[in-house]
Amino acid sequence: MAATETDFTNALTPRYMAWYSFTRNPTAIIGALMVISVVVLAVFAPLIAPYPEHVGAAVNFRARHAAPDWTYWLGTDKVGRDILTRVIFGFRISLLLVVGVLAIAVPIGSALGLLAGYFSGWTEKIITGFTNVMLAIPPLVMALAIGNVLEPNLVNAMIAITLLWWTWHARLVYRVSKSIASEDFVEAARLAGASHWHILTREILPNCISVISVKTTLDAAFVILFGATLSFLGLGVKPPTPDLGSMVADGRQFLPEMWWGVLAPGFAIFYATLGFNLLGDGLRDMFDVEV
């Protein structure tokens, strides 16, 4: 090795730089803690919630519409069930929805975007055209239609959201993969005889991962919000399963006297959404990508 070529082995690694900027970004850390708390509450709900029996069709008329006190920290609803318990279990439904939607929408959207960005010509035209058509459908109208045609329940709400959600990922990944596909290293791989599959999964996809993960985190917030909207409109989970959106809808009838019935689930939606948004913003700064 020639003496003049500087040794770069001690250079800052991207991983170190990303971790450094993440740990020095207070909002990202707060967001991460909020998300972790939501996940912990949801996963360990039966252990944490004070009245796990209030999740189902329990009735406790003696304590109905109780204001928050030391027995029921966040008060009770119209049949006397503990709202804190139901909010904690409500997180479960929200996260289930997030996982269900994103586990399908993200891979499909990313795969289509990847294909459209790498292959030009008709593949690109058809995929981007179809994506644009899907983007033109108002999500709420689509969900209402599906909810009315099929039975309104969690799975159908999930299907409705998924059907539209992949489009955003397709668009984003399309943009990124198109720019990466024109890089020299992709051409070099092709000249080395690499297959399309290899180029898509080994050369282009790894360079899209940071964008996809940031977008997915930000998406989680929107899915929670959208899921709550659907169940607020009565298209989500069926009672008595606790769901943040339908709890707001239930409590709404008793406003303004029984304010706790709306405030607790409303705040829970706000808390989860904000957590994912802050985390997503933090990741975006950390990976230095545009979403």
Binding site: A188, L191, A192, R202, N207
Partner: peptide, 28 residues
């Protein structure tokens, strides 16, 4: 075969030297 002008863009930043060199060999 070709060697490009800018080695910064002709090597995939997410792949190690070994992985990069393996491509032409594996596909041969």
């Amino acid at each position: 075969q070709i060697v490009y002008q800018n080695p910064g863009t002709s090597l995939n930043p997410k792949r190690t030297v070994g992985q990069t060199l393996r491509v032409p060999l594996a596909f041969a």
